[in-house]
């Protein structure tokens, strides 16, 4: 039974509160969507969960263990896996080697040969098995995304965070990713999925988190969240002709703008 507890977590970047006192809990194999305007702090929150960033304040517990103080690799071993908004395949390694890395990392005494068969199966499931011996850089963008999912299958975490898995993939790949999420969820794994694709996220998720300006402004079933005035406000804003922009850290001086 997966248990995740995020308590009052904040993250500052310079003078910016990218994540502002966020709290929520996950119990069991939930399928959770996380949405919010650009710069709302979604990616930062996932980075805090996976240990890529350390919170400025607050605590995170997973399965009863405090993970916000652990290095990322230990968090992975506790059972949290994630993909990145921008694909991050190991480009100068073969697909097979990409898949072997998490498997070997999880099993300190195992030998490579033990995982080749599983890697082949994972690649087959993701329809990239013909590319096993190719370097990852030779793969298309979509295939690299699949490879990232493949690495997660090899890692076999209990809680999976996908950052924008549907952004810019073509429909056929989308089907495979969708399939992957459903299948894996059925096996008892929880998901936190960030997406801009409202339609997909509303149908896919059982629970929806909404962030804006670093704050968690809504948390509940999709239908409820859809009607939440705070959410509508965040998405449409007061002057709705100007989409909300994240604060810039170093505003260009007046002299820096050059007439076209």
């Amino acid at each position: 039974m997966i248990q995740l507890e995020v308590n009052d977590v904040s993250k500052q970047f310079g003078g910016l509160l990218a994540v502002n006192h966020v709290s929520f809990q996950v119990q069991g194999p939930e399928l959770i969507g996380l949405i919010g305007p650009n710069g709302a702090g979604k990616t930062t929150l996932t980075n805090l969960l996976s240990g890529a960033l350390k919170p400025s304040s607050g605590t995170i517990y997973m399965n009863g263990q405090r993970i916000d103080v652990l290095p990322p690799y230990k968090i992975a071993k506790v059972g949290l896996g994630r993909t990145f908004q921008v694909t991050r395949a190991f480009r100068r390694m073969t697909v097979l080697e990409n898949l072997l890395v998490p498997a070997l990392a999880m099993h300190p005494t195992a030998r490579q040969a033990q995982f080749v068969k599983k890697a082949r199966e994972v690649a087959e499931f993701l329809t990239i098995d013909h590319l096993l011996n190719e370097y990852a850089r030779a793969l298309s963008g979509g295939q690299q995304k699949l490879l990232e999912l493949g690495r997660l299958l090899m890692l076999d975490p209990d809680f999976i965070i996908l950052d924008e898995p549907f952004a810019g993939v073509h429909p056929r790949l989308m089907e495979i990713i969708y399939e992957y999420i459903i299948e894996t969820n059925k096996q008892g794994k929880a998901f936190l999925i960030i997406s801009h694709d409202m339609e997909t996220i509303f149908t896919l998720s059982q629970r929806l988190l909404v962030m804006a300006f670093g704050k968690l402004i809504a948390d509940g079933p999709p239908e409820e969240v859809k009607r939440d005035p705070a959410v509508i406000e965040a998405y449409l804003g007061s002057d709705s002709d100007k989409p909300w922009q994240p604060e810039r850290k170093t505003p260009p001086a007046a002299g820096d703008r050059i007439a076209a």
Partner: peptide, 21 residues
């Protein structure tokens, strides 16, 4: 395998359980 993964992307390697340090 691990040091090549680290060369390619430290953060990704860490998130996959590789003890980068």
């Amino acid at each position: 395998l691990f040091i090549r993964a680290i060369r390619e992307d430290e953060e990704a390697a860490g998130s996959l359980g590789v003890d980068v340090v």
